[in-house]
């Protein structure tokens, strides 16, 4: 027991290495910020493509559904490895795309972000879809009967209502995404896991990993409470709504 505590919960050791670990964690936050913002937009685009009406759009719908199915099924870790190790070896790509070094970040940062974006875009598309499908069908009919096009109706009527229905599940995706930024450690980006295991190798003490976990806790625990609040609020609104409809 004592050995376990020394190995993982050495407070003095944590304080000694706090700066290094925090520096690694900062990279996780940056990975998250970049890929989450892009995935929120990409997921919405995928959801809209999936909902395009009519026969001409059928191939678009099929490709979109295939994309969403495939990238929800492939483990993110494998995708990080394929992108991180594979894309740099695609000699037909220009070097700026093969080994992107934008904004002073290494290629592993950008290729890891790409893997996160591709995977979580698919997950978020499903969350958006749930929101879109929760909007009563009469809304689209009313919008179309007024002469607005499908896209105008989506933009002005359906999507604004859909996004109000999904903050809780979307926040859950974002929390999972933040944690999954640690998977990019397998392509040697010096984020929090990479940093902590480096320290572990040098010192034979694993407390830096625990410290990393604590940093995630500090960010995510409040977010989980926010999810609870959002769920409670939307339930409350539903109850109120039905009451008013009767009045």
């Amino acid at each position: 027991m004592q050995e376990f505590i020394n190995q993982f919960f050495d407070v003095g050791f944590m304080l000694d290495h706090f700066g290094e670990v925090l520096e690694g964690f900062r990279i996780n936050l940056e990975l998250f910020l970049v890929s989450a913002i892009l995935a929120l937009a990409w997921g919405l685009l995928l959801a809209l493509l999936r909902q395009l009406p009519g026969r001409p759009a059928k191939p678009v719908r099929a490709v979109t559904i295939a994309y969403i199915d495939i990238f929800r099924a492939v483990p993110l870790l494998i995708l990080v490895l394929i992108f991180g190790l594979g894309i740099p070896s695609l000699s037909f790509l220009p070097e700026a795309l093969r080994l992107p070094q934008w904004f002073g970040k290494p290629d592993t940062f950008w290729l890891g972000s790409l893997a996160l974006l591709v995977t979580y875009g698919a997950y978020m598309a499903e969350v958006y879809r749930a929101g879109i499908e929760a909007v009563p069908g009469g809304q689209m009919e009313a919008a179309r009967s007024l002469g607005m096009s499908h896209l105008q109706s989506m933009r002005n009527v359906i999507v604004p209502q859909a996004v109000r229905k999904i903050p809780a599940p979307m926040l859950n995706e974002l929390i999972a995404m933040l944690k999954d930024t640690t998977l990019v450690s397998v392509i040697a980006l010096n984020e929090v896991i990479q940093t902590s295991t480096d320290i572990q190798t040098k010192t034979f003490n694993s407390s830096a990993l625990t410290l990393g976990a604590l940093m995630f806790l500090v960010i995510i625990l409040p977010a989980a409470r926010v999810v609870d609040k959002l769920i409670a609020r939307s339930k409350d609104r539903l109850a109120r709504g039905s009451h008013i409809e009767v009045a």
Partner: peptide, 27 residues
């Protein structure tokens, strides 16, 4: 059948419809 063309919307701009369930935009 096409649904993408201009004259579906053109038609609907000339024909107003009111529904049993109102279908106002709640937002």
């Amino acid at each position: 059948a096409g649904e993408a063309g201009w004259d579906v919307n053109f038609l609907r701009q000339r024909v107003g419809m009111v529904f049993q369930q109102f279908n106002l935009f709640p937002h």
